[in-house]
Design a protein around this nucleic acid. Structure first.
Length: 401
DNA sequence: TAAAACCCTC
C-alpha cells in the first residue's frame, strides 16, 4: 500500500478511478481513508458511487454514523440516490449496521421494498438492538407476503436470533421453511446455524442430527457441537468430540478451547481444565484470551480454589490485556459463596474502582460480609451504595421492562 | 459485489 501511495502521489493527473482505487486500498485503516477523502474534496473532485461505496465500508468499520449521513447527503446532492440501486443498498446496510434503523427503514420503504440484501441488513440490524427482535421477524413475514426472493443468508440470520431468544418453535419453523424453499442452499454456514440453534434451545438430539448430516464440517461446526454438549453438562461427549475432531485433522481454534474450558467450569473439572489450557498454548500455539482466563478463574473459584484463581488473575498467564469487570464479578461472587472476606474485599475494591455506579458490586460485597456475619460492614456497604447514588442507575431493570 | 455461522463467567 505504501508503494501504491508513492506512485499515486507522483501522478500528475489523477483521475477518479485512481482516487477510488486508493480510497478502496485503505479500507483496512479508516482514518487513512477519510484523510484521503479530505484531500480529494480539497482538490475539488466529485465522488461517484464507487467512492461513496468504499467510504461507507470504512465508516461501518469504525461505526461512524455521522460520516454515513454525510455520505448520504453527498449522494443526494450528486443525484446518485435516485439512480443507483447498489448505492442505496449500501446506505441501508451502513445505517442498519451502525444502529440507525430508522434511517435504514426510511430508505428501504422509499426505494428498495422487497430487496433481499436490504431486508437481511434490516433483520440483523433489528437483532442487534435487543428490544427489536420482533421487528426482525416482522420484516421476514413481509418478505414472505411480498414473495421476495429468499436465500440461506437471510434464514441463517433469523436462526441466529432464535438462539438469543432460545425459541425452539420459531427456530423449527424457519428450519422447515428452508427445507421447503427451493431457493435456499444448505451451505456450511446455514448448517452451523442449525446446530447452534438446536443446541442453544435445549434440543441437543436435533443439534446432533444437523451435525451428523453434514458432509463437510468446518471448525465452527465442531465447535458449536462441543459447546452444545458443554452447555448440557456433558463433558465426556464434549471432550470425546474434540478428540474425534483432532483425529480427523481439523484444527481447533480459540473458540473451540473456550467451549471446552467452559464445559470444565460447569462440571468442576479443574484438572482437565488446566490440561486443556496447556494443550491450547503448547500444542496449538493459540494465544490466551481474556475470556479463557475468565473461564479458568470461574472454574477455580467455583470449586473453592480462590487462592489459585486470584493468583491466575494476578499473573494473567502472560496476557497483556486487562481483566474485564465481569471476570472480577464472577470471582467476587465465588468469594461470597465460599465466605472468603479477604479476597472478596480485594475483588470488590477492584470492581468499585472500575464501575463505581453498579449497585450489584456493593450488594455482592455486602453479601460477603453478611456471609461472615459481619453485619456492621455489611450495613456500611449498603449505606455507601445509597450515598453513591447508584441505586437509581441500575439499568438492568430498565432493560427488562 | 453486498447480507450470515462457533465466543467465558456474574
Amino acid at each position: 500500500m505504501e508503494d501504491a501511495r508513492l506512485l499515486f502521489d507522483s501522478m500528475v493527473v489523477r483521475d477518479l478511478v485512481s482516487w477510488n482505487i486508493m480510497i478502496d486500498g485503505y479500507t483496512a485503516d479508516a482514518s487513512l481513508t477519510f484523510g484521503l477523502f479530505q484531500l480529494f474534496l480539497t482538490e475539488g473532485k466529485k465522488p461517484d458511487c464507487y467512492t461513496i461505496g468504499n467510504l461507507l465500508r470504512a465508516s461501518i468499520e469504525v461505526n461512524r454514523l455521522e460520516m454515513i449521513s454525510e455520505l448520504h447527503g453527498f449522494s443526494i446532492k450528486l443525484g446518485l440516490e435516485r439512480s443507483n440501486v447498489a448505492l442505496v443498498r449500501s446506505l441501508i446496510v451502513a445505517y442498519a449496521k451502525c444502529g440507525s434503523l430508522s434511517n435504514a427503514l426510511k430508505l428501504y420503504e422509499c426505494t428498495m421494498e422487497g430487496d433481499l440484501i436490504s431486508c437481511t441488513a434490516l433483520i440483523t440490524g433489528f437483532a442487534q438492538q435487543n428490544s427489536f427482535t420482533s421487528c426482525a421477524f416482522d420484516t421476514f413475514k413481509e418478505m414472505i407476503l411480498m414473495k421476495t426472493k429468499m436465500d440461506e443468508v437471510v434464514v441463517s440470520s433469523l436462526l441466529k436470533i432464535c438462539t438469543t431468544i432460545a425459541s425452539i418453535s420459531i427456530g423449527r419453523q424457519i428450519h422447515c421453511f428452508s427445507l421447503k424453499s427451493s431457493q435456499i442452499r444448505f451451505d456450511v454456514a446455514l448448517r452451523n446455524s442449525l446446530i447452534d440453534m438446536y443446541a442453544k434451545s435445549g434440543v441437543i438430539e436435533d443439534a446432533v442430527l444437523a451435525f451428523e448430516e453434514m458432509e463437510e464440517k468446518d471448525v465452527r461446526s465442531w465447535t458449536s457441537m462441543i459447546s452444545g454438549y458443554g452447555r448440557h453438562g456433558n463433558i465426556e461427549k464434549a471432550i470425546g468430540l474434540y478428540n474425534i475432531m483432532e483425529h480427523e485433522g481439523i484444527k481447533p481454534n480459540d473458540v473451540t478451547f473456550l467451549a471446552l474450558l467452559s464445559a470444565c467450569s460447569h462440571t468442576g473439572e479443574t484438572e482437565i481444565g488446566w490440561e486443556i489450557l496447556n494443550t491450547m498454548v503448547n500444542k496449538y500455539g493459540i494465544k490466551v484470551r481474556e475470556e479463557h482466563l475468565s473461564c479458568m478463574v470461574d472454574m477455580l473459584a467455583r470449586g473453592g480454589n480462590l487462592e489459585d484463581a486470584y493468583e491466575l488473575m494476578r499473573s494473567k498467564n502472560g496476557i497483556t490485556t486487562s481483566l474485564s469487570s465481569s471476570t472480577w464479578g464472577a470471582f467476587l461472587d465465588a468469594c461470597r459463596r465460599h465466605g472468603n472476606v479477604q479476597l472478596g474485599k480485594v475483588a470488590a475494591a477492584q470492581l468499585l474502582s472500575m464501575e463505581p455506579k453498579r449497585p450489584v458490586n456493593y450488594v455482592n460485597l455486602a453479601s460477603v460480609y453478611a456471609a461472615n456475619e459481619d453485619w456492621d460492614n455489611a450495613l456500611k456497604t449498603r449505606k455507601l451504595m445509597k450515598e453513591t447514588g447508584s441505586c437509581n442507575t441500575d439499568n438492568t431493570l430498565n432493560k427488562r421492562f
